[in-house]
Amino acid sequence: MGTRILGVGALLLVVAASVNGLFLVPADLNQGDAQRIMYVHVPSAWLAYLSFGVTALAGVGYLWKRDLRLDAVALSAAEIGVMFTAFAIWSGMMWGQPVWGVFWQWEDPRLTTTALLLALYVGYLLFRRLTDDPRRRAARAAVVGLVAAVDIPIVHFSVEWWRGLHQGPTIGSPERLLDPAAPSQFVIALVSMVLAFTVAWAWLMVRRYQLARLDADLEELARRGRVAEARRAGLAAQRVEEATR
């Protein structure tokens, strides 16, 4: 029931924030309507960071507690994080063409490190398929998730560490949040979209976690079924051997 309320709340918030971002907020003086892409680009990037941060923390939690539920959290966050990273890259490309004049530039550190982030977590999801043993898989995935998480601060600070095409953060620090470079109407539209997407992320996380637990239960049932079958086959072979003696 709670998850359903969360889902309906997320839907309403996303619809309201989208109507505001697409139709009510005025176009930017310099960027024109292309500025509206930022209202989905920034939340997507934020949720990619959040997801991969959760994957890393759940991985640490698994290595410490050896609880497979934490591995399910890590898997759920990684899959959703991959989706939001792809959304951030796609929306960034759609914004880059009208504003920068190019869809993509490999020399830009933010763009390149984000592409690397996507590749790392797609690799994480593929890596998980290499073994059927849930405990071995969880332990290995936790280590890979931690190693991949090193790229998160590199992506975030790349705009400050290196020069590139990508601009610095609009609201990247507490001081910037209180005194943002953008007009308040734009900031309100952006923050409301971030909030709406974060609630949607929470709902997706709950549902993906439920799916991961159901998959784990079915995997365990299948394993038990195989063991029971092997036992039956073993007993039958033993009986045949006894009968032929």
């Binding site: 309507d33 292309a34 892409i37 989905v40 680009h41 792809a86 959304f87 796609w90 929306s91 759609m94």
Partner: peptide, 13 residues
């Protein structure tokens, strides 16, 4: 570009 960005993201979600 706006339709492509928003459409893919909201549709994808």
């Amino acid at each position: 570009f706006i339709v492509a960005a928003w459409g893919v993201i909201l549709g994808g979600l």
